[in-house]
């Protein structure tokens, strides 16, 4: 980066010895390997838990759905946070994902709202 302009018009040429070297953070990555294994195991256990819980009667079907979704969300959170490195990911990506989350939630919630609040007798007339 000798001159201010080089940032966009050229990349520093990687000299061929350095790119084959093990990066400085190799040890850190190696330590992550154990974490990945643990998370993988946790996911497998939680899969078993999901299946098991679905045969427990929590009082109503809706309650069972809520319980099942909570476990699934925990699993999805683990995958996103650890495997997809969202834990400690750059702020730019987080911003997008939060927006996406809001809009996706809007899509779910408002669809449900619109469905649960019809003028009685018109929406379900065909059933």
């Amino acid at each position: 980066m000798s001159a201010p302009h080089t940032d966009h018009s050229s990349q520093p040429v990687l000299d061929s010895s350095s790119i084959h070297d093990v990066p400085a953070n190799a040890a850190e990555i190696a330590s992550h390997a154990v974490e990945y294994l643990k998370v993988g195991a946790a996911l497998l256990v939680l899969t078993g838990v999901t299946v098991g819980l679905s045969y427990v009667d929590f009082g109503s079907r809706n309650m069972n759905i809520v319980v099942g979704m909570i476990v699934a969300t925990i699993k999805a959170g683990l995958v996103a946070a650890i495997f997809m490195h969202l834990k400690g990911e750059k702020i730019t990506i987080w911003r997008f994902l939060v927006m996406t989350g809001i809009f996706a939630a809007g899509l779910f919630f408002l669809t449900y709202l619109a469905h649960s609040d019809p003028i009685s007798g018109t929406f379900h007339a065909t059933h």
Binding site: H20, D21, V22, P23, N25, A26, I29, A30, H32, A33, Y36, L37, V39, G40, L43, V79, F83
Partner: peptide, 14 residues
């Protein structure tokens, strides 16, 4: 999913 992060980590460690 576990093996694919392992594959990536292996590459990182060359």
């Amino acid at each position: 999913s576990v093996t694919v992060v392992f594959a990536w980590a292996a590459l990182k460690m060359r």
